[in-house]
Design a protein around this nucleic acid. Sequence first.
DNA 1: CGGCGAATTGACCCGCATCAACTATCGTGG
DNA 2: CCACGATAGTTGATGCGGGTCAATTCGCCG
Lengths: 255, 255
Amino acid sequence: MMTAAAEQGLVFGAAPWADRLLMKLRQRDDIDAAEEAALRSVIEPPQSYPARRVIIEEGEPLDRSALLVEGLLARVKDMRDGQQQISELHVPGDFADLHSFTLKRLDHGILALTACRIGWVSHEALALVVERFPHLGRLLWFSTNLDAAIHRAWTVSLGRRDATTRLAHLLCELQVRLEIVGLADMTGYPLALTQSDLANCLGLTSVHVNRVLRDLRERGLVTFRGGHVTIADPVGLCDFAEFSPDYLFIEKRPR
Amino acid sequence: MMTAAAEQGLVFGAAPWADRLLMKLRQRDDIDAAEEAALRSVIEPPQSYPARRVIIEEGEPLDRSALLVEGLLARVKDMRDGQQQISELHVPGDFADLHSFTLKRLDHGILALTACRIGWVSHEALALVVERFPHLGRLLWFSTNLDAAIHRAWTVSLGRRDATTRLAHLLCELQVRLEIVGLADMTGYPLALTQSDLANCLGLTSVHVNRVLRDLRERGLVTFRGGHVTIADPVGLCDFAEFSPDYLFIEKRPR
DNA sequence: CGGCGAATTGACCCGCATCAACTATCGTGG
DNA sequence: CCACGATAGTTGATGCGGGTCAATTCGCCG
């Protein structure tokens, strides 16, 4: 019962800030009460960070990972000439840098795009949990592999899609990922990004993102305005973007 | 002694086809004799595949992973309109789809770009080894996270670098990765790809790759001809490409 | 020698960057 | 309450990197 309630994000018992993480993991595989308790126990109470704060500097040695509880995070790489590229966006329920558990430092920075709340997990505690509950370990491993799958989808967008399709595809991805953690309904979702942030995801300039947003709006597919994405024609949008959620692995599979 | 020899890829004892994999993993962390034996034992004798053969179809259910022993593999995604994007190149010693261990199917295909030899590993056997040797499990987890780091480097190239720099960066990456497994010397390495393959990595057309190769040659940085990359000016090339091997995590770190 | 895929080169075009102006929004202090 | 300054968004004019199309040439194999 506690398990079922947690699935809907309604539990305010132990470490409720892990609810969205559990929602996300449970769409992949069952997690029993012992595993749930162990996982919740390693996540520290969330700390708040203001928008635009660098949470983790590129290369910094790390002994903990960040679970995003609220807000939006980005994995960013800065170039010599001042350009920036975002390699992934993180929504609540995501570990933004679970890969630092094995990498011990990051090849990119972690930047708060909005005000955020983050629950930290020490690698030491995580190592114990993973050895004690190998199935949970495999699920967390899965979770980093899912990040890689998202990277590959972005690679395809950047390499082979034009600006309009690329943006449409990203908005589809976010719809699905936010739905999983209960932050989107069928009509859309709040998204407190600037057009410049989107440009840094899409390898474009903010000027062009602006034009492309107008294009998508005028096509009657999707609107992004005032920090909210409104999907006018879900089927049309997916088709236009050649979007299929397959790469997000939303399916129950034994570990 | 066997361990030290294996480090140089000279052992022809048990499963010598795992030598390059061990070379690669050992640049990250020590592997003791028991772990080495366990790892070697799960890798089946290599099978041969001709160039251009699809090794794994996108979406196909998987219960084993492919260790590349010889040749070149690519992770490919095909688009509706016939375009193709490669999201990663694999060199000998790489698991091409270790992530299928947790994903159970792939979001992309695996294509042999040249004639290849592949040693298969069943997920069942792998699961046993990983539970028995958690440190080895962490090292393999690291290895999939390294793939993700390579994806991110490509994302940056595709999003923010021009064609010439992008190609230069890729050639630098391959130099380093091939050096690790003893397939490149300081002057360069064999690379049996077509210009069209490179185009599919870089989000370009083969026509433009051709022009860009000429540009790099005329700048005196690097030459790609007859299936061989010759690096004329290593320092100049790295500088030109804004290349740093940091994202390849070539450093000993405790697991 | 003939055939075929890969490489090479030129001419032309288009998507997106760049540069530049202007407007909208919002928080802040006088 | 308004003036302001800062940041984000919007739109137009112009230029360039890389795509497209097409014609050779090269290199290898039968």
